[in-house]
Amino acid sequence: MPSATHLVLIPSYNTGPLVLQVVHEARAAWSPVWVVVDGSTDGTAAALQAAAQVNPGLEVFMLPANQGKGAAVLHGLEEAARRGFSHALVMDADGQHPAAAIGAMMAASQAAPDAMVLGLPVFGPEAPQLRVQGRRISNWWARLETLGGGIGDSLFGFRVYPVAPLLEIMQRNRWMRRFDFDPEAAVRLSWRGVRAINLAAQVRYLQPEEGGVSHFHYVRDNVRLTWMHARLVVGMLGRLPVLLWRRVAARPAPSAATPR
């Protein structure tokens, strides 16, 4: 039976036929599954719409032009809130994220609905070392910006978000529309007091001959990430008293000395 509270949300932009496999695997693990086609020009929109015609657990939304991952997620969140869903598991359409882990991620979210459930990537030997090592910089900044708020990985986009707080953050913020969505969403939710639960999830980096597609641009997107972290550090400064208080409050109380 389809969940009335939790859905899988897949933003898709020019990922080729691989998106159909991702959607098939996601549907085998969960229902409903929504795909937001972010202005794709590779012909996959028609194939996805055809699949939705014969699969009641699948729904496809079309954006007229490419607006970015965050914008596609925002479109899905707005529709999810309108229909009464409380949580959305966001996963990429390029085959990197493990559909087999959807059930465990959703179960963790259902057990702790006030939390965000963040995938913690487990990299295989095929993972590009430049990507693996480079993400440590973003993770360091995220820990600083939240004063150790528990974000295991700031860039891994396989996550279950509580819809209401994330939607409110995005509607009040003109950023978070492209590659900067994943780290900024986690940091800003942490600022709001949404705690993070980290669950290990295997990552697949597909080669081009396997259908792998990447829209990551090292110069452009690293500049965007640098600008994002600069904004977040400035935003963190105004929240220091609250963040420090939370850090102190989270410390375990010292155990009483055992009487002799």
Rank of each mutant, 00 (worst) to 15 (best):
R260Y: 07
L243T: 03
R246G: 05
P254A: 15
R260G: 11
A142H: 06
L77K: 07
R143Q: 10
A26E: 08
P125I: 09
R239C: 03
A50D: 13
L166C: 01
V248A: 10
A200P: 14
N222V: 03
Y218R: 07
T5I: 10
A112F: 04
H97L: 04
G149Y: 00
W141S: 06
H215V: 03
L89M: 11
V219N: 00
W141G: 03
A142Q: 06
G68A: 02
G148I: 06
V194H: 01
F61N: 02
L58T: 09
G193P: 07
L74A: 04
L89H: 05
G95A: 03
E210K: 11
R260T: 14
F158I: 13
D94V: 02
A26P: 07
L240C: 09
A71M: 05
L144K: 14
E59D: 12
A186H: 01
Q67C: 09
A257P: 07
P11M: 09
P64G: 15
L18S: 12
S3M: 04
R178A: 12
S40Y: 03
L20D: 13
P254F: 13
F158V: 13
F123Q: 07
A28S: 13
H217D: 08
A257K: 13
F216W: 03
H87W: 03
D38C: 10
S109Q: 13
P11A: 11
I10V: 15
V187R: 03
S138W: 02
W191M: 08
A256H: 08
Y205G: 02
G84K: 08
F61K: 04
D42Q: 08
G149L: 02
D42E: 12
A115H: 15
A71K: 02
W140Y: 09
A201E: 06
L48W: 00
L89F: 06
L18P: 05
H215K: 08
A46V: 09
A65L: 08
H215F: 04
E184H: 08
T5R: 14
A51Q: 13
G119M: 00
R143Y: 02
V90I: 15
A80Y: 06
A93Y: 00
R251C: 02
Q53K: 14
H24Y: 11
G103M: 14
A201S: 12
V132R: 13
V19A: 08
V8C: 11
A51T: 05
R82K: 10
G84D: 11
V33R: 07
N55L: 08
Y13D: 10
V160R: 04
G103F: 14
V19C: 09
D42F: 06
H217W: 01
Q207K: 15
E79K: 06
G152Y: 00
Y13A: 14
Q67D: 09
I151P: 00
Q49K: 01
L243F: 07
A80I: 10
L147K: 09
V117E: 02
I10N: 09
G134S: 04
A115K: 10
